[in-house]
Design a protein around this nucleic acid. Structure first.
Length: 380
RNA sequence: GGUGGGGUAGCGAAGUGGCCAACCGCAUCAGACUGUAAAUCUGACCUCUAUGAGUUCGAUGGUUCGAAUCCAUCCCCCACCA
């Protein structure tokens, strides 16, 4: 019999860092951590079929509250019996609250103390989203993990603005924590604070002050929102130790291989990022030794697979020259194949990282990752 | 053979005396992308010893301080009529 939903087991801890192997139990099965969650904003991971994600061992993916509320709308989601049924995804789903759209759609929204007025990026319709609305939508979506509605401020922003954003994020978190949830739905709080340690600390402590029943896990938000590379990891470090070690810690929106291995070393368990799928559509290919653009002219006559030794279907059957051709002429299969490969590369990366923690070789895994990708990724 | 239209950078296409190394689109080349307004966006794209210089607008000659733009001759393409 599986443990109760929401149980987070810590299975192994790395002696050389704060890395740990864990397992979070959701209503749609276990999630082995550290985990990478592909982003499926609009009820699909772009260019990927659900069975392809299953084949890669994907246990959980993302959906988006704002975007799914705009289209198809909650009446449609209800009609189809929730988000899982709608997109026929049998694993777990984490829904982002819409807080990121406060950042990414800055020019289309207006902040108020109680929430945010969005002007739809599709047809301009005004819609209000606050903590209650976000939680209600996520309830209808029926996600396994609902994120608290937060304000994700950009970088740079003034200390004063970061302070206000933390005020709002904490006030909204309290509202979220009091809202009803879907059956078996977990709820994560989000720590903001920008690049300011005092604000990071105030936000994390404020979330914890809502009590252990408020949240099942905690996220680090507002990272990689415009700050230079060298400020990303400090933002993580100044927050992660403030979050309970017996609960999953989720670094939102990150990211690159070296950022993930370094964050795992700090005690982070969960990641999501659009990079593997977005960059796939732009012709960028991730490999164990770096990334490169398969669109580049040097690949025109290259008969090697995208990554030598890779076991993904794209690499088992097709050459760089062919895939470059498909991307070059705009054929759909091109982005399908690069997405397939990049998702495979991400899951391969995470699987190897988990294995290294299990086998006690995480330190050298970190070093290899830093060498291949580095804080300043070398031109592959 | 006649009449009319036309030849502009890899292609298409503006420009019809100075603000033109020449708008724009495509193609090409390169770069960026981190809780996805992104199969998107940015830049380069005549040559060079390159915040400057040199050679271009079918060819040659001419007018003019100055020509892709005006004139003459020639070459080629298209349409219609013979």
């Amino acid at each position: 019999m599986p443990p109760p939903i929401g149980t987070f087991e810590i299975l192994h801890e790395d002696p050389t860092s704060k890395a740990r192997l864990g397992r979070l139990w959701t209503a749609h099965g276990p999630v082995d951590t550290p985990v990478f969650m592909p982003v499926g904003t609009q009820a699909t991971v772009k260019a990927m079929a659900p069975w392809e994600l299953e084949a890669e061992g994907c246990q959980i993916l993302l959906g988006n509250t704002y975007h799914l509320n705009v289209r198809p709308g909650m009446d449609a989601i209800e009609r189809f019996g929730g988000l899982h049924a709608f997109q026929d995804w049998r694993g777990a789903i984490l829904t982002d609250s819409g807080g990121y759209q406060v950042f990414s759609l800055t020019s289309l929204r207006k902040m108020t103390p109680d929430g945010v007025w969005f002007q739809s990026h599709v047809d301009g319709t005004r819609m209000f989203m606050g903590p209650k609305e976000s939680m209600a939508i996520q309830r209808t979506l029926g996600s396994d993990i609902a994120m608290a509605f937060d304000e994700c401020p950009p970088c740079p922003c003034t200390p004063e603005y970061a302070h206000e954003a933390v005020d709002r994020t904490l006030a909204w978190a309290a509202v979220c924590a009091g809202e009803p949830r879907a059956a078996g739905q977990l709820r994560f709080g989000i720590a903001q604070g920008g690049v300011y340690p005092a604000e990071r600390e105030r936000c994390a402590k404020g979330l914890l002050a809502l009590g252990p029943g408020a949240f099942d896990g905690y996220a680090i938000g507002g990272v990689s929102v415009g700050e230079p590379d060298e400020l990303i990891m400090p933002g993580v470090r100044m927050t992660v130790d403030l979050l309970p070690r017996d609960r999953p810690r989720y670094l939102m929106g990150v990211g690159q291989f070296w950022q993930m291995s370094e964050s795992v070393a700090e005690g982070v368990d969960m990641f999501d990022c659009v990079m593997p799928t977005r960059l796939a559509r732009h012709g960028m290919v991730f490999t164990r030794t770096g990334r490169y653009s398969v669109r580049n002219a040097v690949n025109r006559l290259d008969d090697r697979p995208m990554e030598e030794g890779c076991g993904c279907m794209a690499c088992r059957r097709f050459t760089r020259g062919y895939i470059r051709h498909l991307l070059n002429v705009g054929e759909i299969l091109g982005v399908r194949l690069t997405a397939l490969h990049n998702i495979h590369a991400y899951f391969d990366f995470i699987a190897r990282m988990r294995q290294s923690i299990r086998e006690g070789t995480f330190a050298s895994f970190r070093a290899e990752t830093a060498a291949a990708y580095g804080p300043k990724p070398p031109a592959a």
